[in-house]
């Protein structure tokens, strides 16, 4: 007996929600980036679930593209965090308030 599609889709929605909550409540910029990764993975899970339900490979190809974009995003994001730390000495998003009036 195989797993119904709505199981995967429900799991994907829950993971996306947890990631979004993390982005909203956490203040460490590294953890915020990790939560964005959680959300991307949740989207990947939904893409694969719907793709296999439609018996189509387009979902899997899209997931591969998302993975490449996520890898590039992590590299650039971490470089930005290191640069931020060099300039401000902070990894807490509330301490970076240079543009605050």
């Amino acid at each position: 007996m195989s797993v119904p599609v709505y199981g995967y889709v429900a799991l994907s929605g829950l993971l996306f929600l947890i990631g979004a909550i993390g982005v909203l409540v956490r203040r460490n910029v590294l953890v915020i980036l990790m939560c964005v990764e959680l959300m991307l993975n949740a989207a990947n899970l939904a893409l694969l679930a719907f793709g296999s339900a439609h018996q189509s490979l387009d979902g899997q190809v899209t997931v591969l593209m998302v993975m490449a974009v996520a890898a590039a995003e992590v590299a650039v994001g971490l470089a930005l965090i290191v640069t931020l730390f060099r300039h401000q000495g902070a990894t807490d998003v509330d301490e970076v308030s240079l543009l605050k009036g």
């Binding site: 195989s2 797993v3 119904p4 599609v5 929605g13 296999s52 339900a53 439609h54 490979l57």
Partner: peptide, 19 residues
């Protein structure tokens, strides 16, 4: 997601053939 699942309708099990 609920709307997409309702629109999906019949093929509610992932296919084994693709992949």
């Amino acid at each position: 997601l609920g709307g997409s699942l309702v629109a999906l309708g019949r093929p509610a099990h992932p296919a084994i053939t693709v992949g």
